[in-house]
Computed example of a mutant assay.
Amino acid sequence: MRRQEQRRTFETIIGLVKKRNADFLLIAGDLLEHETASRSTAQWVIEQIRQIPKTCVLITPGNHDPLREDSFYKTLDWPSHVHIFGSDWEVLGYDEFSLRVFGKGFADYEEPESRFPAAPLPEKGERRIMLVHGTYSPYRADSPYFPLCDQDLLPLELDYVALGHIHQPSLHRLDNHRGTWICYPGSPESLRWKETGERTVTVGSFGMDGLSLERIAVQTRRYEVDQVDVQGCDTEDQLIRHILDKIPPGEERQACRRIYLCGRRPADLSLQGEWILSRLEEEGFHYVEVEDETFPDYDLDQIRKRDGLAGLFVRKMEERIDGANPEEADLLRQSLYKGLDALMVKGSRS
C-alpha cells in the first residue's frame, strides 16, 4: 500500500507541473533507489514524465541512485525533454528564460571530495540555478555525500540552489547582493517516523521582483507521532476515550500514527497493546503503533497513612496543593511525584 501511495504522490507532482505549466521540473537525486527499485517502477516513472513533454526535466543522480553503468539512468530510454547530469559539472543555457543551470550527479554511493565549477560573472539579467545532491552546511564540514557550504556557493552568483539528500525541508538565504536561496524541499512522501507533518515540493517563479518561492503539500499520507499522558485514566476504556479526544475523526485518523503512552498509570491497570490497537482500528484509524512508556503510579492513600518521612511529605504537599491556584497546583503535583521518586528510591536502597 505504501508503494502505491508513493506512486500517487509522484502523480500529484506531475499533476502540479501540468496545472502550473511549469517550464522546469528539478529532481535533485534519490529518485530511484539503486538497490531496491524495480525496472517496472523506473519504466512507470518514465511514463509519468512523458505526460509533461513541454517541461524540461532536469535530474541529478544522488548517493542512492548514482550514475553507475547499471543504473536505470543509463539502461533505460528516457524522453528527449529529460536531461540527466553526469558526474562532472555541466552548464546548461536556456536563452529564452535568460537562465543558466549548473548541475552534477553522483558517480557512486559516496563523494567526500567536493569541487565546484568555474563560473564567469553573470550577464545582465541572467538568472542562475544550481541543481546538486549533497550535504549543505553554512560552514565547511566533512561529509561522504558531497559537502558544500556558503564559501563554496558565494562566488557562483546563484539565485537558487536546488538540493537533494536531506529528507527534512529547510530554506536558507545567503547574505549577498543576489540573496541566494538554498533549499532542501525534503522528501515529498514520508519514509520514516522522523518525517512527520506535511511533505512538500518547492515551486519557484522568477518575476520582476526576483525569485519567489512557495511550498506546496503533495503527500498522499502523513506520518505523525503523538505523546499521550495516561495520568487520570483508571481503565483501558478511559484511555481509549482519551486518545480519541486527542485525535478527532477525519483526516487525522488517516495518517500513519505512532502513539507513545507516557506518564503514571494505576498499578493494577494492564495496558493490552493488541486490544488497544483493535479498538483504534474500529474507530477509523488507518494505521497505528502504540509504544507503552508508562510506569505504575504511587498509592497515595497508603503512603499518606505511613508514619515515616514519605507519609509526612505526602500530607504536607497535599495541604499546599489544596490551598494553591490551578497553575501552582500543577507544579506542586509534579514536585510531589518527583519528591516521592527520590524518597522511594532512597528507601528501597536502604
Rank of each mutant, 00 (worst) to 15 (best):
I59W: 09
G93R: 12
E282A: 12
F295R: 13
S278I: 03
T202W: 05
K124M: 10
T36H: 12
L340V: 11
E157N: 15
D23C: 01
R3F: 07
D77S: 10
D226F: 13
A267N: 07
Q254K: 10
A118F: 12
A217Q: 02
L131V: 10
S38W: 10
Q231S: 15
S71F: 04
A28W: 05
Q6G: 09
L76Q: 06
H64G: 01
T60K: 00
G284I: 03
G323C: 07
R265T: 01
E224G: 08
F97E: 09
L269P: 13
R178M: 08
L121Q: 10
H177V: 13
L171N: 13
D307C: 06
G207A: 10
D175V: 13
R257P: 00
Q151C: 05
L277W: 02
E318S: 04
D268M: 13
A141C: 09
C262P: 02
A324M: 00
N63S: 10
G197P: 15
D322P: 02
Q227M: 11
M130E: 00
K346V: 03
V288N: 15
G125L: 04
T75V: 14
W181R: 05
E11I: 04
I216S: 04
Y260E: 12
V91K: 07
R39V: 02
D108G: 14
R140E: 15
T36C: 01
E126Y: 02
S348E: 15
E293P: 04
D226N: 07
F106S: 14
R128S: 10
A119M: 11
E236H: 00
L239V: 08
C149E: 07
L153G: 08
L244E: 01
V345Q: 15
T235G: 13
R320E: 15
C56Y: 09
S190Y: 12
D65F: 03
L309M: 12
E111Y: 01
G323F: 10
D150I: 01
V228K: 00
D159E: 00
F97D: 09
H242D: 04
L191Y: 09
P188W: 02
L280P: 14
C149D: 13
I14E: 03
Y298H: 05
L271P: 04
P296Q: 08
D268R: 14
D341M: 09
A267V: 12
C256R: 12
K19P: 06
I243C: 06
V132K: 03
A107T: 08
K19C: 03
R100C: 05
E110V: 06
D292L: 11
V57C: 05
R304Y: 13
E214S: 06
S335F: 11
E90L: 06
R253Y: 12
L99Y: 08
R264E: 04
D30C: 03
H83Q: 09
Q254H: 09
L239Q: 11
C56E: 12
V201K: 00
L26R: 01
Y337A: 01
E281Y: 12
A118I: 07
